[in-house]
Write a protein that binds this DNA or RNA. Structure first.
Length: 802
RNA sequence: GCCUGAGUGGCGAAAUAGGUAGACGCACAGGACUUAAAAUCCUGCGAGAUUCAAACCUCGUGUCGGUUCAAGUCCGACCUUAGGCACCA
């Protein structure tokens, strides 16, 4: 008999909704421990969920159902991250307001999630585009501003010519727009920034208090890019200024033969009148500005540069005059935008010196400087007081000397930069600031929050690099909250990452209209226990969110510094051909179709069975069919049901084993082996003529987190016990997980020659006797000398012969 | 170039502490049921040699070496591959 999955799944989904089965309270009086299961909320695009999303939400749901069954008060919420370019583009294309586009898309997404049977507490749902939500995003921005961490600055930013907006460094990795793939340009623009670089060390230190996957931690550490070294001052001849450089190898100071500064270095403007070859310089600067980030950072391309005529630096130790070169291999965004060049021991400096015929002076013994830059670590030479010292000794001796003589100081440098927080888009949170000619930048008073987006019909990006909001004069023109004079609103909006930088806090107290979340609620739910998301967010969302939370904690606004205890990242689902699923490839599998043809339970079981959850997996509809078959067999097991309320003798041992295995596997996210353990148990039950009510109840319970509908249905039909959604997880007895008899292998010289069946804990001596008496073993030891016998009870026997 | 992982049948994958490699599933083949197909059930399924058939034997977890009674697992070198960082001073 086939089971009617369509009707059963609909029935239980309706039942859960009507009974608020998965609505959770912040009740601190409950005698339950809390568990916060968070999964990255989706961006509700026009295309709906695909089976990759379904895998992630199912895994989180399995975890939530499991933890609930273990007695935890589980927070498993869902919301929508709906600001940003895709919604805006979708709206422009379909000639509707982004607000409406978002509503439409959310409806589709939510419907899909509901048909998967997820145990989400929908009473806590919100979208980052809800004014009641972004009011608090704006409020939090003002806290950054008050703390001096939000500032407006003329900055060279990453500009996407296609999207017509500025991007953060994180969104323009490798000089490519994350959204559309265009090459980004450098553009000087007045931007809002958040001082994230001040938090570099805190972001590094905080990792110690988390249990993130190693590769996630490494990605963050690399992105922050801490390097320890020294700041060294080279006097600029004939001026009051010093040219400052950052170096990690101040021990090679005696090897410096020239200086290099970036084409954007401020001294070039300041001392332009001193520079004789001005025309040559300006030509070079123009060329550099036109180059894309990719071209500029291509390490394989030949070095270019201009030697300044009229400006020289003075070596702080030797007093020698050093030529200053301008070259785009020095980046204005890292360190001081200037370097001391040590061609003998740095590949790049070497290549540059070679090309322009600059002297190369070795200061570390051991390399052949004529053929290549020396990178080994011999002792120092030609270096005065450093001669004979090794790298570590020389660095500390030089640091001491620099500091004592005020030539330089220890300095830690970071790759991490301030967060470019302005976007020239319509569909984002307006930055709640007002500019008044008299008072300067003035905050929007809290009572006027949220600053709402205007309801207009045209919100397409402008060509001049200004936000679309700038054209809406009614909205822009306002009065200064301070002096009451005429003033203008900030027209830039926040990046998409703003709304996702605190959303997990809002779930704790989503209806609060006085605060973003009450301290009590935040204390109750604490840190997110398990946060599941994609690897693509390891350096962006995860860094922004941690920065935001650390800041709020410093302001006394949240109880914990780190927001997430454990971060895991799931793999993708690839199309049947092993390629990434995409609309253009036409290999996207829609979960709706799979649910229609096989049922939500089958889809869920298959998604969990497909392979290691943290790795990519290739979709196979045949695999899904196999899981459907498994559920059919679970359904048909009812025909074997007897009246007995204890475990069947033949199955008891395996049942205890399976409870243990499934429990541990869900805990450690090894969902695929948990499912296989259930398949093994089913196979054994199927071999029996009858199974007991307890046998059935237990396998159904273990399967419930994976296939909640069919299991609740069977449990109800046969009155096997309470609903699984309110039952405690089955217990196993350790001693009953061990078999009384077992088969162990017998090897001769490490090769398997036979197996013997013995009772558990058979002694060493007995094992040896049994092993030797095996016929095939005899054949292999006949006429040979037994050197020794290794017999390990319950494991193996190995006979070593010569 | 540097930093992480990962390489196991035709395929997706298993293998707590070194202890019977390939569990579980898919695909495939043979059989049962059926007028037939689908569904379902049963059997087989790493490669090779041998055999009527089987037992048995040899080889086998990316490559080469090592440690050990015993290596997918530990150690060393290398190859391939995925991801992160990268003219970062």
């Amino acid at each position: 008999m086939m089971y009617n999955y369509k009707q059963i799944e609909k029935k239980w989904q309706k039942y859960w909704k009507e009974n608020n089965t998965y609505v959770v309270s912040n009740d601190t009086c409950l005698d339950k421990k809390k568990y916060y299961m968070l999964v990255e909320f989706p961006y509700p695009s026009g295309v709906g969920l695909h089976v990759g999303h379904a895998r992630v939400y199912t895994a989180s749901d399995v975890q939530a159902r499991f933890k609930r069954s273990l007695g935890y008060n589980v927070l498993f919420p869902m919301g929508w991250d709906a600001f940003g370019a895709p919604a805006e583009q979708y709206a422009i294309k379909n000639h509707i307001h982004p607000k409406m586009a978002v509503l439409e898309n959310i409806k589709v997404f939510k419907g899909q999630m509901e048909s998967l049977g997820l145990s989400i507490d929908w009473s806590r749902e919100f979208s980052t585009t809800d004014p009641e939500y972004y009011k608090w995003t704006q409020w939090q921005f003002l806290q950054f501003y008050k703390a001096g961490l939000a500032y407006k600055d003329e900055k060279e930013i990453n500009w996407c010519p296609k999207c017509k907006t500025g991007l953060s460094n994180e969104d323009a990795q490798g000089g490519v727009c994350e959204r559309c793939g265009s090459r980004t340009e450098k553009k000087l623009k007045n931007q809002w920034l958040l001082r994230m670089s001040n938090y570099a060390d805190k972001l590094l230190d905080g990792l110690k208090n988390t249990d993130f996957l190693d590769k996630v931690k490494t990605a963050q550490v690399n992105w922050i890019g801490k390097s320890e070294g020294a700041l060294v001052k080279f006097h600029l001849a004939g001026t009051e200024d010093d040219l400052e450089v950052f170096t990690t190898r101040c021990d090679t100071l005696y090897g410096v033969t020239f200086m290099v500064i970036s084409p954007e270095h401020p001294f070039l403007k300041k001392y332009l009148d001193k520079i004789v070859n001005r025309n040559e310089l300006e030509k070079y600067q123009k060329e550099a500005a036109l180059k894309s980030e990719i071209e500029r950072t291509d390490a394989t391309k030949e070095k270019t540069g201009v030697c300044l005529d009229g400006l020289e630096a003075i070596h702080p130790l030797t007093g020698e005059r050093l030529a200053i070169w301008v070259s785009d291999y020095v980046l204005s965004s890292y360190g001081t935008g200037a370097i001391m060049a040590v061609p003998a021991h740095d590949e790049r400096d070497y290549a540059f010196a070679k090309k322009f015929g600059i002297p190369i002076l070795p200061v570390i013994a051991g390399g052949d400087v004529l053929t290549e830059a020396y990178t080994g670590d011999g002792v120092h030479i030609h270096s005065s007081f450093l001669d004979g010292l090794d790298k570590e000794e020389a660095i500390s001796a030089m640091l001491k000397y620099l500091e004592e003589n005020h030539i330089g100081e220890r300095k830690v440098n970071y790759r991490l930069q301030d967060w470019i927080f302005s976007r020239q888009r319509f569909w984002g949170e307006p930055i709640p600031m007002i500019h008044c000619d008299k008072c300067g930048w003035v905050e929007v008073p809290v009572c006027d929050l949220p600053v709402l987006l205007p309801d207009v019909s045209s919100y397409e990006p402008t060509d001049d690099g200004e936000s679309p909001l700038a054209n809406i004069t009614d909205w822009v023109n306002t009065t200064c909250p301070k002096c009451g004079g005429v003033a203008k609103r900030e027209t830039d909006t926040m990046p998409n990452w703003a709304g996702s930088s605190w959303y997990w806090l809002r779930y704790m107290d989503p209806k609060n209209s006085c605060e973003f979340a009450s301290m009590d609620a935040m204390k109750y739910w604490g840190m997110v226990d398990l946060y599941d998301g994609g690897m693509e967010h390891a350096t962006r969302h995860l860094l922004y969110a941690r920065f935001w939370n650390i800041f709020l904690h410093e302001q006394g606004l949240v109880p914990y510094s780190e927001p997430f205890l454990k971060r895991i990242s799931h793999g993708m689902i690839l199309g049947e051909g092993g390629e990434k699923m995409s609309k253009s490839r036409g290999n996207v599998v829609n979960p709706n179709d799979m649910i229609r043809d096989y049922g939500a339970d089958a889809l869920r079981v298959y998604e969990m069975f497909i392979g290691d959850y943290t790795k990519d997996a290739t979709w196979s509809e045949n695999g899904l069919k196999g899981c459907k078959k498994f559920l059919n067999r679970i359904w048909n097991l009812q025909d074997k049901l007897n009246d007995c309320c204890e475990y069947s003798k033949n199955l008891e041992n395996l049942i205890h084993k399976t409870i243990k295995k499934v429990t541990n596997d869900i805990e450690t996210l090894n969902y695929n082996t948990a499912v296989s353990a259930l398949m093994i148990l089913l196979n054994e039950m199927d071999k029996e003529k009858e199974i007991s009510r307890r046998d059935y109840r237990t396998i159904l319970h273990l399967l419930n987190p994976f296939a909640p509908h069919i299991t609740e249905e069977l449990n109800e039909i046969y009155h096997l016990g309470d609903e699984f959604s309110s039952s405690s997880w089955p217990q196993y007895e350790e001693e009953k997980t061990v078999s009384q008899t077992l088969k162990i292998g017998v090897q001769v010289n490490g090769k398997l020659r036979s197996t013997i069946e013995v009772v558990k804990d058979t002694s060493k001596d007995e094992l040896e006797k049994l092993a030797i008496s095996e016929e095939n073993v005899q054949k292999h030891i006949e006429g040979k000398e037994i050197i020794k016998i290794i017999a390990i009870p319950n494991r193996i026997v190995n006979i070593v012969v010569k």
